[in-house]
């Protein structure tokens, strides 16, 4: 973002000085000064407000600015230096929920759990830092615990993957046609081997 550090705008209530404080106060003051000089008499008798979009201006700095603005005939309404309240950035949710079918060539990689409400087709890849749950047929490649969490699981309504990976372990289904599972199944690591079991509530 290359927004300017200091922007001066005319508004209905007078002049707005919009600050984005990315450097020391000296620079900001000089920039404002430069703009005031360019304006000449234009600002005389006006009212100014300060809008701080980034960073913070101290009381002392406010006073310095006030003095400087006065020299150019601007009255700083310092009763309310306006701060914009930044939107709180919500932390990334731990689980990504995907309501679609992943098709060949599509790849989902997520730093948490992944839930797919749909199928995962052959040729597609789901990679998760945590668990992978598929509410549909998992026929592609799934890698749970991609950053090494051996407790991660892969569960699917129909677990028929091309290949399964949990943490650093890779497994592929046996050669030949294997029967389509009739129940939801869970794959997890046991003694360094990926085992698949029917999913029961314990």
């Amino acid at each position: 973002m290359s927004q300017k550090m200091v922007v001066i705008k005319g508004t209905r209530d007078g002049i707005s000085i919009i600050l984005r404080r990315r450097s020391d106060f000296e620079t900001i003051r000089n920039t404002i000064l430069e703009k005031l000089q360019k304006g000449g008499d234009f600002f005389k008798g006006g009212e100014a407000r300060l809008l701080v979009k980034e960073g913070h201006i101290s009381q002392e700095e406010m006073e310095q600015l006030e003095t400087m603005l006065k020299e150019y005939g601007l009255n700083l309404k310092k009763d309310h230096p306006l701060y914009t309240i930044p939107f709180p950035t919500p932390p990334l949710p731990e689980t990504l929920i995907l309501k679609k079918t992943l098709r060949s060539g599509q790849r989902i990689s997520y730093g948490g759990n992944v839930v797919v409400i749909g199928d995962v087709n052959p040729g597609s890849e789901v990679i998760a830092k945590g668990d992978i749950l598929v509410f549909g047929a998992l026929r592609g490649m799934a890698h749970a615990g991609a950053e090494g969490d051996a407790n991660s699981i892969v569960a699917a309504y129909r677990l028929q993957p091309t290949q399964l990976r949990i943490a650093g372990v890779i497994a592929r289904p046996p050669e030949g046609k294997s029967a389509v599972p009739q129940v939801p199944e869970v794959a997890r690591l046991k003694d360094g081997v990926i085992v698949i079991e029917p999913y029961y509530l314990h």
Partner: peptide
Amino acid sequence: IGLRNLDVVMGLENRIV
């Protein structure tokens, strides 16, 4: 690349790492 098939025709798809 992006539309691979040879692995499927050779029956080796599930061995790809």
